[in-house]
Design a protein around this nucleic acid. Structure first.
Lengths: 141, 141
DNA sequence: CGCTTTTAGTTGTAGCGTAAATCATTCCGT
DNA sequence: ACGGAATGATTTACGCTACAACTAAAAGCG
C-alpha cells in the first residue's frame, strides 16, 4: 500500500494537472483558508511539511504564477503565502479529477462498513504517528 | 497517512541501518529467495518497482558490498542479483528494529478486530491498484 | 537597554525516483 | 533463416526532498 498508493495518486495528478500530490495538497489547503492566505508556518502545519520543503514548493509555484508571497506587516520575519486567481482556478479545475481517482482506487472498492472501519483504524494509527495532531482528521480532502 | 507513514518508517531505517525503506525491502525480498538470488526482472516484480529504479538501487548497494550482479548463463540479456554474506548479515541485523517500528506505529494501536478489518480492506484496495497481483499478500514482511 | 535565544524563513547541496533514450539479446512469423 | 518486434537491463537527465547552514527579526532576561 505504502509503495503503491502514493504513486497511483501522483501519476494521475502529474498527468492531468502537472502537480505533485504535495503541490496539489498545498494549493488545496490554501484554497480553504480565509482570504486564501496563510503564513508559511501555518501552511506547513496544515500540510504536515517542513518549512524548507514548503519554501521550495512555494518558490516553484510562485514562478509559475499560482502563489504570491508578501511580507507580513505585523511580524517582519513572517511571510504570507496566498493563492493567485490563476492558482484558485487551477485548484478548481484539478479537484474533480483527483477526487475521482481517489474514489475509484480506494472508496469504490469498499462497502459502507469498510469505510467506517478504515476511518476508525486510520484515526488510531494517525494519533500514534502524530500525537500533536495538526493534521485535521475532519474534512481534509 | 500517505504523507506520514512512509516518512516514519524511512526515518527509523535511515537512522539505524542507513537504508531506505525500499532498499531494505529489496534486501529482504532477495533474502527470502532460493539461494538468495533472483533475476532483476523477478526482483522488480517482488518489490513492485520499475527495472530502472531497481537497477539504480542495486548499483548503489553493490558498490557498498551488499549485492552482487552476475550475468545469467541461460539468457544473456538477463542479470542475476544475489545477496552477499555481508548483505545477508545486514538484513538479519536490520530486521528486528524495523519490525519493532512497524509494530509500534501501526499494529500495537489496533486490537485484533482492527487488524482483521485492516487486512480485509487493504486486500480490496490492493486488488484494485494492482489487479495482476505480483505483490504477494501473504507473508511479505 | 544590551545580549542571548528562539522563531520565521530561505538557500545550497547531495541523494533518490521517474521518464526517456539506448543497447543487447531473444522470440517469432513467414 | 532472416528481419522486425519484444524483452532484459542500464544510463542519462532532470525534478523533488531532506538536511544542514545561514540570515533576519522578535522575545526573553538580567
Amino acid at each position: 500500500m505504502i509503495e503503491l498508493l502514493p504513486g497511483t495518486l501522483d501519476s494521475q495528478l502529474q498527468r492531468d494537472t502537472e502537480f505533485t500530490h504535495f503541490e496539489y495538497f498545498t494549493l488545496a489547503m490554501l484554497s480553504e483558508a480565509p482570504e486564501r492566505k496563510l503564513r508559511m508556518t501555518a501552511l506547513s502545519g496544515a500540510t504536515n511539511s517542513s518549512l524548507a520543503r514548503l519554501s521550495h514548493v512555494i518558490a516553484r509555484l510562485e514562478a509559475k504564477g499560482f502563489f504570491a508571497r508578501t511580507p507580513c506587516p505585523e511580524d517582519r520575519r513572517a511571510t504570507n503565502a496566498s493563492l493567485t486567481d490563476q492558482g484558485w482556478q487551477k485548484v478548481v479545475a484539478s479537484a474533480p479529477g483527483h477526487v475521482a481517482t481517489v474514489r475509484d482506487s480506494v472508496i469504490d472498492v469498499l462497502d459502507a462498513g469498510d469505510v467506517a472501519d478504515l476511518d476508525r483504524i486510520m484515526g488510531r494509527i494517525l494519533s500514534r504517528l502524530y500525537p500533536t495532531n495538526r493534521l485535521r482528521s475532519w474534512g481534509v480532502e
